[in-house]
Nucleic acid binder design. Structure first.
Length: 480
RNA sequence: GUCCCUAUCGUCUAGCUCGGCCCAGGACUCUGGCCUUUCACGCCAGUAACGCGGGUUCAAAUCCCGCUGGGGACGCCA
């Protein structure tokens, strides 16, 4: 093991991959990529009630979609495995025994019922009091032979536990505020604190970066490291991502599942860019390519105050990527739009779409919107918006259409620049405002009032389809 | 209730370490305008914040104290 940083992301498969979790994963990943260190992915599935293999699969799938690849962990393996906590039970038992043997922890035979009763009694006497484990078994060694027990950490009753947080600075928590927490359940499954410390220890993790909601656990974990005789890693806690109004971020504040963004057609790098800027800043810069982020990220530019998730800003940042070829080149754009095109149109003329997409980019907020915006090219007939049709095709506004048709019919080249020159010359000659020609023509060709430039459209559609659509538009008016 | 964390426009934030360049800058949103064959993009302009109260100082968003607000946690959850 060298001196390179080793960081990790350790989600619980108790639900889909949440964007708050992605932010944590991202910061760890950026640090590993910047420093040439390792990014470890492990699964903390000790909550048997809520963990499922399906959730685990979703998490792995979403991490891959985001491009947050890991050097060690599930699927890729590594020399510190296994990387799923339920596959590491013997290791925790070994460490728990070590703690009990050294006197740093002890067996507690109090049953859940006894604890509940004591808690209830205390609440009855004083509703505001905080229940704390009374230490019944703290100093006993008269352990019953065949009764279930949990393992509790013997927390010092005085003094302070301190550590340096890369984001929050020096932390100093009175031990008197802690209690003898359970670190191992009676069924031999470790609790979060034990599992986390043993894993970070045995996996050689040098820096633990996680959400601030875990900050409360850190003193206990520091105590665990010390009891086990290990140096503590560095810690970096990240401020919380809350929903609008300051409440815990949930579905009603917008999509929180990564999978939802993928399905909506939001680019992964846009999502990541938004998340990177949440609790981290680099002067006034806001739009970053991934390579930039890797280069510029640092813990000392992380903020300590909580923030609120804003789906509108996320869309804006994602749009910056979507419309900028330097951030997403045209080939990549086409590749990412492909699944949506297939979903909407089945097999399609990829070469034709590839020519149209660059014109659509400044108008599409997602890949899905981009796919929808080229429908007029892929459908035999454009889908007519009623309003557009009634206003531009069935009225006098369509009066120039026959002349336009005649002019275009006489052209051999349908290159945008050429058609533009010809049409503009005609308009000038006959003193017709270009808009009077363009809008009805646009509707005839696309069915909409909104589209890329008219002459580009003609080039894209080609001579035959352009003329045919103008003819049917003219016919529409005659029939009405 | 107890312990811990935090506090700049509606939101994300710069500035705070080393007080004056800040009657506070950028971005999103919103409004107005320009460009243009439409829309979008782009460009220009505008609205909008240092939570409150005390100090310290010639000078405080920046330092100190108090208050208030917000958040996390107090489980054989993670």
């Amino acid at each position: 093991m060298g001196s390179k940083p080793r960081v990790r992301f350790a989600p619980s498969p108790t639900g889909y991959l949440h964007i708050g979790g992605v932010r944590t994963a991202l910061f760890n990943w950026l640090w590993a990529r910047q420093t040439g260190g390792s990014f470890v992915l492990r699964i903390e599935d000790t909550d048997g009630e809520r963990s499922t293999p399906e959730n685990e699969q979703v998490i792995l799938r979403d991490m891959k979609w985001l491009g947050l690849d890991w050097d060690e962990g599930l699927e890729v393996g590594g020399e510190h495995g296994p990387y799923r906590q339920m596959d590491r039970l013997e290791i925790y038992t070994e460490f728990a025994n070590k703690l009990v043997d050294s006197g740093a922890a002890y067996r507690c035979y109090a049953t859940k019922e006894e604890l509940d009763a004591a808690r209830a009694k205390l609440k009855a006497d004083n509703p505001k009091a905080q229940f704390r484990y009374p230490g019944w078994w703290r100093d006993r060694r008269d352990w019953p032979a065949d009764k279930p027990y949990v393992v509790r950490l013997k927390v010092p009753t005085d003094g302070y536990t301190t550590y340096e947080d890369l984001v929050f600075g020096e932390q100093r928590v009175p031990n008197s505020a802690q209690q003898d927490v359970v670190i191992m359940r009676s069924d031999g499954v470790p609790l979060y604190n034990l599992g986390c410390v043993v894993d970070d220890l045995t996996m050689g993790i040098t820096l633990v970066a996680r959400g601030r909601d875990h900050m409360i656990n850190t003193p206990i974990q520091v105590l665990l490291y010390q009891a086990l005789g290990y140096d503590i890693p560095q810690f970096a806690h990240l401020p919380m991502m809350l929903g609008k109004g300051g409440a815990k971020l949930s579905k009603r504040h917008g999509a929180v599942a990564v999978g939802q963004y993928r399905d909506d057609g939001v680019p992964a790098q846009g999502l990541l860019n938004y998340l990177a800027r949440f609790g981290w800043s680099y002067g006034d810069e806001e739009v970053f390519a991934m390579a930039d982020l890797i280069k510029k990220f640092s813990w000392d530019r992380c903020s300590a105050s909580d923030g609120r998730f804003d789906p509108v800003k996320l869309t804006a940042i994602a749009f910056e990527h979507l419309k900028t070829p330097a951030l997403i080149d045209d080939d990549a754009y086409a590749t990412h739009t492909d699944p949506f095109l297939r979903e909407m149109f089945g097999d399609y003329d990829a070469a034709l779409v590839a020519r149209a997409l660059p014109l659509v980019r400044p108008r599409a907020r997602t890949y899905r919107e981009a796919a929808a915006a080229v429908d007029f090219l892929l459908l035999d007939e454009p889908v007519m918006e009623d309003k557009a049709k009634n206003k531009f095709l069935l009225t006098d506004r369509a009066q120039h259409l026959p002349a336009l048709h005649a002019l275009l019919g006489a052209q051999t080249s349908f290159e945008a620049a050429h058609v533009e020159t010809e049409v503009k010359a005609w308009a000038e000659r006959d003193a017709i405002k270009l808009g009077a020609i363009a809008q009805p023509a646009r509707v005839a060709l696309t069915g909409r009032t909104v589209s890329p430039g008219l002459f580009e459209l003609m080039e894209l559609l080609g001579r035959e389809r352009t003329l045919a659509r103008l003819e049917s538009a003219i016919a529409m008016r005659d029939e009405s």
